[in-house]
Design a protein around this nucleic acid. Sequence first.
DNA 1: AAATTGTTCCATCTAATGATTGAAGCATTG
DNA 2: CAATGCTTCAATCATTAGATGGAACAATTT
Lengths: 216, 216
Amino acid sequence: MKTALDKARQDPESMKARILTVARRIFGDYGYHGTTTRMIAQEVGIDVSTLHYHWGDKKGLYEAVVLDINKDLGQSLRDVERMIHGKPLGERLAISIDVMTDYLFEHPEIANLILHRYFGRTREEAVQEIQVPEFTVDMARSMNLIRNQKEPTPRALLEVLAVVNGIYNFVSGEVFFRSIVHVDREVYITQVKEVLKFILIPAFVQREDKGDPGPA
Amino acid sequence: MKTALDKARQDPESMKARILTVARRIFGDYGYHGTTTRMIAQEVGIDVSTLHYHWGDKKGLYEAVVLDINKDLGQSLRDVERMIHGKPLGERLAISIDVMTDYLFEHPEIANLILHRYFGRTREEAVQEIQVPEFTVDMARSMNLIRNQKEPTPRALLEVLAVVNGIYNFVSGEVFFRSIVHVDREVYITQVKEVLKFILIPAFVQREDKGDPGPA
DNA sequence: AAATTGTTCCATCTAATGATTGAAGCATTG
DNA sequence: CAATGCTTCAATCATTAGATGGAACAATTT
C-alpha cells in the first residue's frame, strides 16, 4: 500500500514533496509552535491554501515530517549496522560515529527534529512519535550491549543514548557552538568527529579489555 | 544598583518573583513560541494584565528568565570549581558530574532553557543570550584543558561542551528517556550519573596518564 | 481620614495564525 | 472540443495570543 508519504517521495519535484522538504527544515529550526504554515508556504513560494490542500492541517503536516524523518533515520542506521558487522568494538564505534555524523551534518533537520521532541513539549496532545525506543534498542544490540536474546538493561540503553545524543547535539548546535569556538564549518565537523571518538570510545573499549561484558 | 531581577529575588513570595519562577518552568518546557503569557498567568493564578504590569512584554519576561538562569548556573559552576580545586583529574570530573547532575535535576528548567537556546531558533531577533561562551571557557580552564594563559583551543572547548551537554541531555530528556528505559525517577538519576562517569572520565584520564597534556 | 501610590482584574483592542471557500487555471479524457 | 477532475490562489473567516485602559481595590503616606 502506498501511503501519502510514499507518493510524495516518488517525485521529489512534486508540490507535495517540495512542501515536505521545506517543512522538515523549518519545523527543525523553529519547533512546532515556532513554525507557521505561512513561513513554510512562503519558503516554498506558494499560498498557504495550497499547503493545506496537500497536507491538511498543521498537525498533519508535522506528523508527516516526523514519519519521514523516522524512515530516513532508520534506513541510515540499518546501513551503518551493515557496515560495522563483525568488526571489533573500537572500530564499530569509530565507523558509526564517522558515518552517522557525516550523514546528520548533511541532514541537520533530522537531528533538530529529534532534539525538539526529546526536550520540548507541545500544547497539542498525541502528535506522532519519533521511533527512538526501537532505534535505541537496535543500536544497543548492534553495540553488543545486550547479552543473548535478553531485554536490554536500562544501563545499556542509557549508554546508547549518551552516544547518539553526543552526535545530535553537535549537529544541531552547530550555529551556536561555532560562535563559541570560532572555526568554519569544515573544521568544526572534523573536530567534532575527533572529539566524539576521543570521548566515546575509550570507556567501552576499556571495559571490554577487562573482560567485563558490560551492563548486558 | 538593584536590578528588577534582584528585587524579584529579594522576596520569593512577591508577585514578581512568583511569575518569574513559573515563567522559568513554562518557557523551559514549551520554548519561547510554545509558551503563551496566558499559560504563565493561569499557572500563577493571576490575570495576564498583572503579568504585563510586572514584567512588560513577553520578550522582556523571557530575557529576565534567561538572566536569572545565567545567574543561578554561574553560581553553581563557581561552587563546583571551589569543590574540585587541587584534586586529581579523574576526581575533579567525577565530583563535577555528581554535583552538577544533582543540581540540574533539582532545577531542570535550567537545562531545558539552555537546550532550547542551543538548538532552537526564535522568530524574534536579539533575545538575551545565555552566557554559555563564558561558562565554557571557565570550565575548560577548571578542567586544566588550557595551558598557561593561552586562549582555549577549539578542541578543548568542544571537549567541555561534550561533557556538559551530556548532563543537560539526560536532565531535560528525563520524561522521554524514562519512557524508554522504564525506571522510576530515583533509579534514573542514579544510573545517569553512573553512565556519565563511565563514559566521560576514562578518555581524559587515559590521555593524562600518557603524559599527553591534551589539546591545550 | 484623606490623599497618594501601588496592585489587580475585567473588558477590549489589534495582530498573527490556522483554516476554508470559491473562482480561475490547466491538464486529461471521452 | 466539451467535460471532468486536479491544482492553485485571492479573499475571507475564526480563533488565538500579545497587549492595554480604566475601574476597583489595597497599601502607604500625609
